[in-house]
Write a protein that binds this DNA or RNA. Structure first.
Lengths: 230, 230
DNA sequence: GATCCTTGTCACAAAACTGCAACCGAAGTG
DNA sequence: CACTTCGGTTGCAGTTTTGTGACAAGGATC
């Protein structure tokens, strides 16, 4: 899976380092800036999945950056978390009302920050937070019913989709045709086991389009499995 | 607009009264219970737009209620805010990881609670918060009931409007006809699933007028979704 | 009450998918 | 090497799913 992209807008260098460390460890690509104007530009360039925004920064204020981000069509749907030293209620409410999705008060625990970000992402983009299956360079998003390989969209028919999904759920494991029929087709289907071959072929054809290495391994007299190193 | 519906699960009567008061003033219809089992039942009956859940309640624990709500298709997408006396970091993180959308520690300010709820709602169901919805070059202003594509006004019938609104609230995600019937039509409507097709067609017709690319993706044997890159 | 708009269904057309059977070649076996 | 077994491929007919246009019923408007 490609990493989630985080745009961090924070002018306290030490704090930014700390936050960056924890988010990178959690699997984010972090882009940093301490300047409000630059943040707006970077938001367009980087297309982050999430923006962490300090309330008090150089240039325009964080709250103003937040407002402007919300107004632009390209960034209107990117979740924003406000980061601030102020703990007074009125400020917190103002932050939330401006369109921030969450609001964290300094000092905070970096782990909690990451957990909160995950919670916000899970809401906004389930795709980025779990409904996602992956193996090697294959990604499957169940909610949007999409499959990619190396970034390219792979069109799959319903059966091939279910088949790949099942394989992705147990990568590496070998399934006999019978077991696959049971798992991928409706349980009572009376279908010739060889039919599985045909669908495996169709899956391979779609997946390997463009001369990519075959990830579906055939285990003679046993079945099929997903496998990158053969 | 019809009021937003809040399900409050809290067994401290005084606290529940306080919270109820503030949310009703903010324009919510509040349904209350102090019991976990009952909460699950009410969630199905009331179809709340948001659930406020105390961590420590009678019957099953709040965290278990949260988990079960998330597992059910009908309530999986309802935003949940956890309410708790525990302030320790590990608990907070556990709460968020269970699938809660936000986490508020007692004692809290009722006003902030309402503001946080609004922020969560704005994320999850932007339409409820009177926000502008947008995807690709489609913009919808819920308040004024107006839809634009690339600047041009798009006339839509009531049903098509609600359908598009629902798709816009979860762009990219695939909805089965049944789920769309549930979300876009009244919950008890006994309508042929194929009727959805017809309305999708009408929506497409209106949206794609003037030879624009189709943004409604058909996912065979799965449903429909909004989708720009196909 | 006449008119206009919206809605849910239906029937038919078009498109996509499915399973099978037949034929081939590759991999084991002795 | 001759033989056997197993998986790969292909074409296609039948089936399933979706698109589409027409229509009648119901509501709203004026």
């Amino acid at each position: 899976m490609t990493n989630k992209r985080l745009l961090l807008v924070e002018d306290d260098r030490a704090l930014a380092d700390l936050v960056t460390f924890h988010f990178e460890r959690a699997g984010y690509d972090v882009t940093r800036t301490g300047d409000g104007e630059e943040a707006l530009i970077l938001a367009d360039e980087v297309r982050p999945d999430m923006i962490l925004l300090d309330w008090m920064i150089e240039g325009i204020s964080g709250i103003e950056v937040c407002r402007r981000l919300r107004r632009r069509a390209t960034t209107a749907n990117v979740p924003i978390m406000m980061l601030t030293a102020r703990g007074e209620e009125s400020d917190r409410i103002r932050g939330l009302e401006t369109g921030a999705d969450d609001y964290v008060t300094k000092p905070f625990s970096p782990r909690e920050l990451v957990a909160r970000a995950a919670a916000v992402l899970r809401r906004v983009r389930p795709a980025l937070a779990g409904e996602q299956l992956a193996y090697a360079d294959i990604e499957m998003d169940v909610a949007s019913h999409r499959v990619r390989r190396g970034g390219d969209q792979i069109p799959l028919g319903p059966t091939e989709f279910r088949l790949l999904k099942h394989l992705l759920e147990h990568p590496g494991r070998v399934f006999s045709r019978e077991r696959l029929l049971d798992a991928v087709w409706s349980h009572d289907a009376e279908i010739d086991a060889r039919t599985v071959d045909v669908h495996v072929r169709r899956l391979r054809q779609a997946l390997n389009a463009g001369d990519r290495p075959d990830l579906v391994r055939t285990v003679r007299s046993a079945g099929y499995s997903l496998d990158s190193d053969r």
